Amino acid sequence: MSVSLQVIYPITKGTEFDFDYYLGTHMPLVAEHMGPHIDRTLVTRGLAGGPDMPPGHFAVATMVFADAAAMDAAMRASGPVMADVANFTNVQPQILVGEVIA
């Protein structure tokens, strides 16, 4: 059964997010260290929170794994990825691990 890991970067007062660094440096680190265990990755940049509403999140990164064992292997390799977060944002990311059902 496929599982997903979503890393959610909420926007709150005083938070910042460097998309150039995130896409140019951080995501290549994800690919290098965790990529061998990831089936697919999707990064969504927040544009709006609804009609005429500002976005509530800078971005959501979704990684899909074949199973929990693959996700566990990716997490064991994620040290350099986790250490890099402070280089592009001061946001405390939210994490959602889920079962892919559709």
Rank of each mutant, 00 (worst) to 15 (best):
A68H: 04
G46E: 15
V3T: 11
A77D: 15
Q92R: 14
M53F: 04
P28A: 09
D67Q: 10
A83Q: 12
H33L: 09
P10G: 07
H37C: 13
L47H: 07
L42Q: 14
G35N: 10
V97D: 01
A66Y: 01
P10F: 11
A66S: 12
P93Y: 09
A73W: 03
A73H: 03
F65P: 06
V91K: 05
M75K: 04
I11S: 02
T62N: 14
P28E: 11
S78Q: 04
G98P: 02
P36Y: 12
A102N: 07
F65A: 07
L5V: 01
F88K: 08
A31G: 13
P54Y: 03
G46P: 12
L23W: 00
S2L: 03
S2N: 05
M34H: 10
T41C: 10
P51H: 04
A74S: 11
P28Q: 10
M82I: 08
R40Q: 08
D67H: 12
F17Q: 06
M34F: 10
A31S: 12
M34P: 09
G24E: 09
L42V: 15
L42H: 14
A68K: 13
T15D: 08
G79P: 01
I38N: 04
I8D: 07
G79I: 03
R45M: 14
Q94V: 01
R45Q: 15
I95V: 12
